[in-house]
Every structure is written in C-alpha cells, then in structure tokens.
Design a protein around this nucleic acid. Structure first.
Lengths: 230, 230
DNA sequence: GTCTATATGTTGATAGAC
DNA sequence: GTCTATCAACATATAGAC
C-alpha cells in the first residue's frame, strides 16, 4: 500500500533492493539478534544504509516496520507448513500421528537449514519471533501462526479419531512447546551451543506424548487423584 | 553482603520491609510484566516508593538489582525441585519415568498455585525468567537451573538404565520445553487465557516422549534416513 | 541511608531543505 | 524519496546536600 502511486525512482520491477527492502532485511536481522526493545531505529537504518527519516517515511513507526518485516519473513514458512499438513491429510484419511507432527515440525527445520548459509538471519529470528513477549510481536505471532495451529489440530483430529478436542488442542500446544525450545535452544536462549538432534527425535517425542494424552483422556480432562501414590 | 556493617536504621531483625526489600519486590513484579528492557529503574524505584539513587546505592546497577531479585525468587523453587528429585531417587533404586518427571514439574505448579493468591507476581515471573533472551537473565537462568537439570538427568538415568546420556539429556531439554510453554502460556505469551490442564497430563506427555526417545535411540543419535517415506 | 539535582547518552519521531 | 538537524522524552548512573 506504499508503492502504489508516487514512487518514481524506487519501484523497479524487482531488480535491485531499494530502500524499503533493505530496511525490511535489516529489521529482520537486527530483530533476530536483539529482540524488539533491543533493536533501535538508528541501528536498523544504519545497517540498511539509510536514515531514520526514511524508515518512518516508509513505515510510519518502528512497530509498523517490525510488523511488516515479521510478516514478510514468517508467512512463507507459515504456508509451507500449512501445505505440508494439508498434503498429509489429503494423502490418507487417517494419517499417523508421526506424519502429522512431521508436517508440523519439518518445515521449520528446513527453513532453518536453508537460511543457515546466508548468515544467521533465520536462526535467531524464529526464536525471537516465538519467544518475544512484547505485545506487538505476540500479536503478529498469533495472527501468523494461528491458521497453522488450526490446520494442525484438524490433521491431528484425523489421526486420532474419537479423541476429545481439548486433548487434541493440548497436543498442539505441547508440539509448539517443543518447537519453541528447539528453535530457541540453538542460538538465542541460554548461550549454549548444544548439539542439534535430528528432526525425527523430536517427532518421535511429540508423537509419543500426544498418543499418551489420547490414551489417557482422564489425565487431560480432570485429574484430582494420584497425589503421592509412591 | 550488603547488610553487614553500616546499616543502623534498616537492618531490623526481619519485621517490616525496608527499602532494599521493597526494591526487590518491585523489581520482581515489574520484571514479570515488562521483561528486562521493558523495566526501568524509574518505574521500579517509584513502585517501591523510593528513588533511583537508593537502588543504585543498594545494588550498584540495574542488572545487579535484577540478578538479586531473580535469585531471591528462583532459588527456593530450585531447592524444592532438587529435594523432590532426590527423594524420588532415594525412594527407589529404579524409579519410574513418571515419578522423575513429576518431581521435576510438580514444584513449578505448586509455586504457581501458591503465588496465584498474592497477585500475579509469580505468574508472569516464571515465564519471563524462562523466556527472556537478555544475556544477564539468561545467565542467571543457567546458574540457577543447571543444578536442577543435572539432578534431573541423574534421576532420569536411574529410571532408564542402559539409555545413552545424550538421549537422557535430550529428554531433559524437552521436559524443560514443555515446562516453559506451560509456564508461559497462561499469562505472558500470546495474550490468550487458555485453560490449564492438570499436571498429570504434562507428566504423561513428557514421560511418554522420553520413553519413545529411549526405545528408539537410533533417532536420537543420528537419523539420515526416512526422508519422504510416505 | 535517602534524597534532589544533574551529567551524559539514547530513544522514537518530526520539520524542513533538497 | 531521502537527507540533516532537531525535539522532547526517556534511559542509567553519579555528585553532593542532609
């Protein structure tokens, strides 16, 4: 909505990165390193080789610029996961839990592996996007990931016929939990450079956990018993 | 180490909260709401009914004050969990995975339930402590929680004889993953007020996941196969 | 020990020249 | 469209009176 009318010198057909594009790229990179409050307009615009005024001209505010950058980067991954999930559901009327969980988790690893070559843009970025507690980021995260989560729940319900919807929802949430930790524990969180286990380990963990929830719905719904049954 | 020598008017035997105590309390509360960069000395000292100078007099810097507050709040929980883990190990030479995971997770829920009455001090706090990517917070988190994690790994190794240490370590990491999400998803993360499933659901999920890792060490060590075996 | 006042730097956003 | 110069507000930290 900004490159509509009066952009005579920068609205090329897509050849060289103009100022707006450079700003988005720099925003992503610096946000990935420092989070929202840890990233200043000055740092971003300096990294983009322009000025604060240019950024405010194109986006209006710091938050708007961040939102644009986050959506730009997160939605392709978003679509990748939705496609994978729909493919699993379309391929089998009753897919395995592993297949569904794999469709949910694998694209994240693929994108991380792909962006590992072009610097660490995408590494910390996913962690920041998932973990930043700032309200604006949290809102974007919800907007972008809620369709995926819904798609995941639908696929999971297919894989687990007869299981309650709240159990399915809990399984989805805990899948995200594992995903978040995976994504954060390699770069942003503890400063540790832990070894990265293969994707299948995480899929096996999550699938077994979800099956445990499905097999014991009593624990999911309400469990006042078994306090100290040692 | 600050109330040792020259504190004639505020080092009471523990009756009324002095300035230092009020500062720690306010630091915890505001940090729980806004994170590290989102919490200023001005806001903290104003909430504590004192001035920035007093805070710097007692703690020296913003980061030092935060560190003191974090340790003050996190270490009791820390000890609770270590005790529970040691009790499980002492009670049975080969405890169940559920018992070990329960000892790891339950104290967190207990502390959250206990602090739910005294305002939302402890609710967001755990989430912030676990999720804040700031270096100083991350360092404290590591210092405080590493002993617990080590204790948990030891107990888990008891419950899973013959399982590789890296598999055990992965199980511990993913337990923390679930814990983080549980703790963050009720207040700080998405702004959603999701229903809180019982503790046993999380224990069942984690225990089953860990067993899956233990039963298939092939996936934990290295898994170059099974790319698209659909 | 605690305060007021201040030093020094940074932030996000804007005004106006070009 | 992009820049330089600037604003007002905020940050952490310190100096010195009391």
């Amino acid at each position: 909505m900004t490159d509509s009318a009066g952009a005579p010198a920068s609205a090329g057909p897509g050849e060289h990165p103009d100022t707006k594009e450079r700003l988005l790229e720099a925003t992503l990179r610096l946000f990935a390193e420092g989070g929202l409050q840890g990233t200043s307009m000055r740092a971003v615009t300096q990294a983009a080789g322009t000025s604060v005024s240019a950024a405010n001209y194109h986006f209006g505010s710091k938050e708007a610029m961040l939102r644009a950058a986050l959506r730009l980067r997160a939605e392709p991954l978003n679509q990748l996961r939705i496609d994978a999930l729909e493919e699993v559901v379309a391929g089998a009327p009753r897919p395995s839990v592993e297949a569904v969980v794999g469709a949910f988790l694998r694209p994240v690893f693929e994108v991380r592996a792909a962006s590992a070559g072009q610097g660490e843009l995408g590494r910390n970025f996913a962690a920041r996007l998932y973990m930043e507690p700032e309200a604006s980021v949290s809102q974007i995260r919800h907007e972008v990931f809620e369709p995926v989560n819904e798609c995941f729940r639908a696929a999971l319900a297919r894989a687990l016929p007869g299981v309650g919807s709240d159990t399915v929802a809990l399984g989805q949430r805990l899948s995200v939990a594992v995903l978040v930790h995976v994504v954060s524990n390699t770069s942003a969180s503890g400063g540790d450079d832990l070894p990265q286990p293969p994707v299948d380990a995480f899929i096996a963990f999550v699938a077994a956990g979800i099956r445990a929830l499905a097999e014991d719905p009593d624990a999911t719904e309400s469990a006042p018993a078994a306090g100290d049954a040692s």
